[in-house]
Amino acid sequence: MDIWNIFDTEWIPVGTWVETFLQWVVTNFRFIFQAIKVPFEIVLTGLEDALTQAPDLLVLALIILVAWQAGGRRLGLISAACMLAIGLMGAWEESMTTLSIVLTCVVFCSLIGIPLGVYSAKNDRFWTVLQPMLDLMQTIPSFVYLVPIVMLFSIGNVSGVIVTFIYALPPVVRLTNLGIRQVRGDMVEAARAFGASNRQTLYKVELPLAMPTIMAGVNQTIMMALSMVVVSSMISVTGLGQMVLRGIGRLDMGLATVGGLGIVFLAIVIDRVSQSFGISSRERGHKKWYETGPVGYVRSLMGRG
């Protein structure tokens, strides 16, 4: 052995270990991972079926109404323009698939991330353990875990949601943790002083006050999910990402551009709408959500405004 070039030899065969371990997990525990897929699959297919099978114009109208409700007339107009552009470019079907993947991902990230964040805020030890894991999830290049994900979950849209979920989970956990910790001490103390239990304090005081920060986390999660769209198309996830990937593969500039623009327009709509959800009613001049937007309009027509 050449002592001057000791690194020619592979001393720690990490690659082999991982491979053996993965093989072992796949042969013995694949059923567990198939079971994990089930809830993702149910939500995803439900959303996808609804969005793709409903008439395009109905979905378009719904998106515009939601945007109007969330962010006012201006956002309604912006969303209308973006979604019309997508539709007219011929990327409607694909964008609906991508939208359903992103929404599924957000549902699961919130469902799991918000409780994790709340618990981290209450328990410093848990947070010190969780933090490096979140760092890992965010820093490991997503290409690295594409292969094991495919081996464990196989290819397709559901696996795409799971890859995206891993990548997009950290911000909502982090910002929920931050939001809860930032609630002014005397607000929490006051709740306790008037006899609230820990649970009541959480639901009636801490969560509402942390909501703008939590929603900023959800917004970040959505943005990260969108940025995974192209990467995840490599494990044959359909939608806008696949248009881009196919365009690159065939050197079809037109197709790649349409896919890319579709992602941009979709991102603008989702970003703005989710940001508007985070604005508290205080900043909107203390109007309840049902007093504004299309719902408020209908209510005033019915003479209840």
Partner: peptide, 28 residues
């Protein structure tokens, strides 16, 4: 005891900004 026998007032008011005065006062 906290809800029924003891009322507390705080230096920086500690009113909950997301609740109306009625909801603040009725919290206990």
């Amino acid at each position: 005891l906290r809800a029924e026998t003891i009322g507390m007032v705080f230096q920086h008011m500690a009113l909950w900004p997301h609740r109306t005065l009625g909801e603040n006062v009725g919290f206990g």
